[in-house]
Design a protein around this nucleic acid. Structure first.
Lengths: 216, 216
DNA sequence: CACTATATTCAACAAGTGTTGAATTTGCAA
DNA sequence: TTGCAAATTCAACACTTGTTGAATATAGTG
C-alpha cells in the first residue's frame, strides 16, 4: 500500500522517511537528478528540508537510495524467473519475456510507485553519466546470464551481433519505461505510454523475430 | 570544418558565437539541461559568461538554439531520402533505412559535433519533459510520413500495432544515439557505442523482421 | 580620421542551492 | 512520572545560480 508522494490522497500515516523516497523517486524520474532540488522533494513529501539530509545524507546518497530500493528486488525476480524454467527447454520468446519482466511487474501491481521507478530506470539507462555509475553494480550479472541463455537457443550467433541485438532490445525497453507520452500524441490517443500490457505483448514477438533474423 | 568545443585543438578562429553553441551542445548532451551551468558552457567555449546571454538570451533559448540548429537539416534530409525513391516501389528495409538516417549521417561525416548532437537528440527523445516540448515541433511531420509509407508495404497492419512497432524502433535508435558506453562494457570491448556503422547495418534487418512479424 | 553599431568584458544583483548545528519535539523503556 | 535516544524543526551558513546594465573594445563605413 504505497502512495504517490506528490499526490494528495489521504494515506499520510506512512513514514516520513518513505514519503521522502517516494517523492524523490517521482521527481527524479520526471526531471532528472539535477532538475530537482531537495527543497522540492521535501515540499512534495510535506516534510522539512533538513529531514532528507538527516535520513539519507547528501543529495547523491538519496539518489542512490531511491535507485537501490527496488533495483535489487527487480534483479532477484529476474533471476528467479530464469532459473525456475531452467530445466525445461526454453524458447527464445520465454527468455525475452523474462527480460521484459519490469513491464509485467508494473502492469500487474498497478502501483504508481513502480511506474515512477521504471521511468527513473529509463533515465539512468539512457544517461551516459548515470548509466556508467549505476547500471553495472546491480544489473550486469543478470544481463550476462541472459546473453548466455540466448546463446543456447541461437547457437550460430556470434558475440558481437548478440550484443547489438540485446542493445536494441534494451533501447526499446528503455523508451517504453520512460513513458514520455509521445506515442499517445503521435497515435492521437490510439496508444498509451502507460499501457504496459500491450507494450509487453507486442514487444516479445517483435524482438524475437529480430533476434532470429540477425543471430539465426 | 566544425570543432569540438571542449577539446583543445588549435582551430580557434571560428566565431565565439559558434563556440558557445558547440560547447553547449556537448555539455547539454552529456549532462542534460539542468546539469549544465552557463558558466560551464562559457568556460568550455573560452568566452565570458555574459556573452552567451548577449547572443542567445536566456538559458532556455540557448538550449532551443542548440537543438534547432541541426534539427531542421536532419528533418529535411529525411524527407529528401524518402521522396527521392518515391516512384520506385519501396521495400520495408528501405523505409527503415531512411528513418535511421541520423546514424548514417554521423557515421559519414565523422564529425564530433554531429555525434554530440545525436546524443542530445537521444536526451530529448527519452525525457518526458523535453520530448513533449521539443520533438513535436520539427519531427512529427516526418514520422507521420513514415507511418504512412509503412502502411503501403504492410497493408494488413492496424494503426495501433504500427505505432507500437515504430515506438520500439524509436527506442532502439534513441539508445544508440545516446552512446552510453554500456554496450562497450557489457561486451568487454567487442562492440563500441560510437560504431554507428555496425549499429546501422544490424539494426535494419532486426527491425524489419520485427515489423513483419507484428504487422505482417 | 571620426562615427557608429556590434561584440565583448566587468562587476554585481537577487534568488536559490546543498548542507549543517543547535534547538525542539516525539516515542518509548524503565 | 523520568530519562534518553530518535525524529523533526528552525535558522542560518557559504556558495552558486541566471541575469543584467554599464563600461570597454572591436570592426566596418563615411
Amino acid at each position: 500500500m504505497t502512495k504517490t508522494a506528490a499526490s494528495e490522497n489521504n494515506l499520510k500515516e506512512i513514514n516520513k522517511k518513505d514519503r521522502i523516497l517516494d517523492a524523490a523517486e517521482e521527481l527524479f524520474a520526471q526531471h532528472g537528478y539535477d532538475g530537482v532540488t531537495i527543497r522540492q522533494i521535501a515540499k512534495a513529501a510535506e516534510v522539512d528540508v533538513a529531514l532528507a539530509n538527516y535520513h539519507f545524507g547528501k543529495k547523491l546518497d538519496l539518489f542512490h537510495a531511491v535507485f537501490d530500493r527496488r533495483a535489487q528486488l527487480l534483479s532477484d525476480t529476474r533471476r528467479q524467473l530464469l532459473l525456475s524454467e531452467q530445466d525445461a527447454p526454453q524458447t527464445l520468446e520465454q527468455i525475452i519475456e523474462a527480460f521484459l519482466l519490469p513491464l509485467k511487474m508494473a502492469q500487474q501491481t498497478g502501483d504508481a510507485g513502480w511506474r515512477n521507478y521504471l521511468a527513473l530506470l529509463a533515465y539512468v539507462m539512457t544517461s551516459p553519466v548515470w548509466n556508467k555509475i549505476m547500471m553495472d553494480k546491480v544489473f550486469d550479472k543478470r544481463v550476462h546470464e541472459f546473453i548466455e541463455a540466448l546463446k543456447n537457443v541461437l547457437p550460430n550467433a556470434n558475440e558481437e551481433k548478440l550484443h547489438w541485438c540485446y542493445h536494441y532490445m534494451s533501447g526499446a525497453l528503455a523508451l517504453t519505461l520512460a513513458q514520455t507520452g509521445r506515442i499517445d500524441r503521435l497515435s492521437m490517443g490510439k496508444c498509451e505510454s502507460t499501457d504496459f500490457d500491450t507494450a509487453y505483448k507486442l514487444m516479445v514477438p517483435f524482438l524475437a523475430e529480430g533476434f532470429r533474423k540477425v543471430c539465426g
